[in-house]
Structure formats: structure tokens, C-alpha cells
Amino acid sequence: MSTQQPLLAVTGLGKSFGGLKAVSDVSFEVMPGEIFGIIGPNGAGKTTLFNCLSGLLPLSSGAVHLDGRRIDGMRPHDICRLGLARTFQIVRPFQGMSVLENVKVAAFGRHPASADAEHHAHLALRRIGMDHLADLDAERLSVAEMRRLEIARAIATEPRLLLLDEMLAGLTATEAAALCDQIRRINAEGVTILMVEHSVPIISQLCGNAIVLNFGEMLASGTTRAVLADARVQEAYLGSAVS
């Protein structure tokens, strides 16, 4: 593309559990400012890949660089501090905490004083349009609201790169559309986004570039349009009959 340095560079990433290769030889680059997609059927290794990138799992091989700095092998909280935040596919708020307190936990990373953290937690909630729910017990939220809370927590760490893990799965069409708008807005505010998604229409709507995983291997990478047109992708993921 350009001479610009990629924000995230993944080279030859592999992860095995015992003899089972969950992910092998995955390489891609995410440029600052883009929304990058990872597509793949269930069990393709998408979540494992995310766990490797965010430091929850050690890599078996390969390297991950964030803005030129090698981050694999670092602890998750250090990676978070360097500007990589993630959401979890299985959303679970911290129990016994209000929506605001949940986000405050994340905001404390950059704002050690309680009042500062609270202020920035409110800002994060406002960005995702749920500040009016701040004082609610987080466990009383609906599924769609919990997803947004998950994003609010992640952006409260003030990341440069945001990893979204299947944020739209199980939402109604309206909820999904609203969340897509919010993801776009966060991206427009300067946060680069790497998203795992099951649904092809959403990826093609949001992402300029994408890779496709199947059985832990990279089938294709490039612009989303080219990737989705790839014959192997059509066969493996969409089923061979899709035009």
C-alpha cells in the first residue's frame, strides 16, 4: 500500500494445543485507521488468534508487532497499556458492579485517581451511547447492551487498536445495524479496528481488508471483495454453490 508502518503486524503466527494445531502460519498487517476483518467458520481458530494477540495465550511460533514493537510474550495488561484492547465473545460483566464501575475498572489503567477514572468512564459510555444506563446493575442489561458495555470497557482503556470478537452474533438486525454504526463511529474517531465476524455481509460492509481462516490456516488475504471472491474461500466457507 504505502510506506506507512502497519499498526499491527502478525508474522507466521502459530498456536498448538498439544498435538492439535489451532492456528498455523497466519500473517497479516493492519494499517492505522482501517477496519480489518477476520472471517472464518466456527472452529477456524479466530478466537485462539485473538487470545494470542492480546497475550492471554502464548504463541507456539511467529511474532506479533504493535506499532513496530514486539508484543508477543508480554502480559495481557502490558499489551493493553501499549494500546491494544479487546472484547470477549462471551460477554460477562464484573458482578456486583454498576455499568459505570465496570467501565471504571478499564479507565483506571490510564487514570489512577478515582474521580479521573470515573470521568473517563462516563466519556466512554457516552461514546457508545449508554451513559444513561451508568448506574444500573450491569447484570440487568440486555444482551445487546452487554455487548456495548464490553466495547465501552475496551475503549475506556484508550486503545489505538481495538479487537472485536463476534460482537454482532445473536443480535437482531436492528441491534446489529446500530452496533455497526457505533463501530464505524469509533473507527472514525481514530481507533483502528480488527474484528472477527461470522457474518459475511457485515464484514463486507465494514471492512476494507480481510483474511479468511479455515481450520486454523489462512485461506486468503487482501481486500474484502477479492477475498470473498476467492474460489477456495467460496468453497470452504460459503459452500461451493454460492455464486
Partner: peptide, 12 residues
């Protein structure tokens, strides 16, 4: 509540 999630949110 959730050590993994906490760590990912920057909790050492």
C-alpha cells in the same frame, strides 16, 4: 470475577 477479562482491560 474474571481474571482473564480483568487482565485484558489492563489490570496487573
Amino acid at each position: 470475577d474474571n481474571e482473564g477479562a480483568a487482565e485484558a482491560l489492563g489490570v496487573p
